[in-house]
Simulated scan of single mutants.
Amino acid sequence: MLSVQVLCIGKLKEKYLVQGCQEYAKRLQSFCKLTVTELPETRLHDSVDAVLADEGQRLLAKLPAGGYHIALCVEGQTCSSPQLSQLLQKKALAGISQFTFVIGGSYGLHEQVKKVCQMRLSVSPMTFPHQLFRLMLLEQIYRAFSIGANTKYHK
């Protein structure tokens, strides 16, 4: 079974976001082993660069060896839900069994984190709160697996 990790900065605070993420985590159980790893946000003391560096070091320390790492960032390439499904299927057929999606904190991702990822993915040129985006990402991962399995979820 494929393993999918969502590696992210920040804890979910809003009940509706927690419930939504739990729902998609439950749905994903039939397609993959999902792990969500939350790392604490760094408070802004000195500079945004210092925050990005600190969060980046902690994200890099938690990235699993091997697998396929996807950095979520606004400058990444966009793809449709069917294209994401095809990407996951293609990589899985090539022998990749571990996917890690990396979500930064309020200030984004440090460049070093982006460099170690095999893909930079953007869902929109718009900016979303990173906590809301986690729910959106889980839904899209579920949609990608549903497309690949030809289920009724994706229309």
Rank of each mutant, 00 (worst) to 15 (best):
57 Q>L: 12
118 Q>C: 04
29 Q>E: 06
139 E>M: 04
44 L>P: 01
109 L>Y: 00
17 L>D: 05
47 S>G: 03
154 H>Y: 12
35 T>E: 04
34 L>G: 00
135 L>T: 02
36 V>L: 12
80 S>C: 12
16 Y>F: 15
105 G>T: 14
2 L>Y: 07
22 Q>E: 10
38 E>A: 12
80 S>R: 07
79 C>H: 11
130 H>T: 15
51 V>W: 12
87 L>M: 11
152 K>N: 15
142 Y>A: 09
84 L>Q: 08
91 K>W: 04
7 L>W: 00
139 E>K: 10
117 C>E: 00
51 V>S: 03
123 V>K: 13
130 H>V: 15
78 T>H: 14
98 Q>Y: 14
6 V>M: 03
95 G>N: 13
123 V>I: 15
97 S>I: 06
53 A>Y: 02
83 Q>S: 14
76 G>K: 07
46 D>G: 04
39 L>A: 09
98 Q>K: 14
150 N>M: 11
66 G>H: 02
137 L>R: 12
92 A>K: 07
2 L>W: 09
50 A>L: 04
145 F>I: 08
121 L>C: 07
144 A>N: 10
81 S>G: 12
29 Q>V: 06
16 Y>T: 01
63 L>C: 01
28 L>A: 06
85 S>F: 09
99 F>R: 10
97 S>C: 09
87 L>V: 04
149 A>P: 03
85 S>N: 06
49 D>R: 11
151 T>I: 08
47 S>D: 01
67 G>V: 11
85 S>E: 08
140 Q>S: 15
98 Q>V: 12
6 V>K: 00
14 E>Q: 11
47 S>W: 03
69 H>Y: 01
88 L>M: 15
93 L>A: 15
5 Q>C: 05
49 D>H: 07
151 T>G: 06
8 C>P: 02
123 V>M: 15
71 A>V: 00
20 G>F: 03
104 G>N: 03
83 Q>G: 15
111 E>S: 15
139 E>S: 04
63 L>H: 00
28 L>E: 03
76 G>Q: 12
149 A>Q: 07
133 F>M: 15
32 C>Y: 02
44 L>M: 08
103 I>Q: 07
150 N>C: 09
15 K>V: 11
32 C>D: 00
83 Q>T: 13
95 G>F: 14
133 F>W: 14
122 S>L: 12
44 L>G: 02
144 A>D: 09
103 I>H: 10
82 P>L: 06
79 C>P: 05
111 E>D: 14
126 M>L: 15
82 P>K: 03
109 L>C: 04
73 C>G: 00
115 K>G: 01
120 R>C: 14
69 H>S: 01
121 L>W: 13
60 L>A: 02
45 H>Y: 06
84 L>H: 09
128 F>N: 09
147 I>N: 00
134 R>A: 10
29 Q>T: 13
22 Q>S: 07
141 I>N: 04
45 H>R: 05
109 L>R: 00
111 E>G: 11
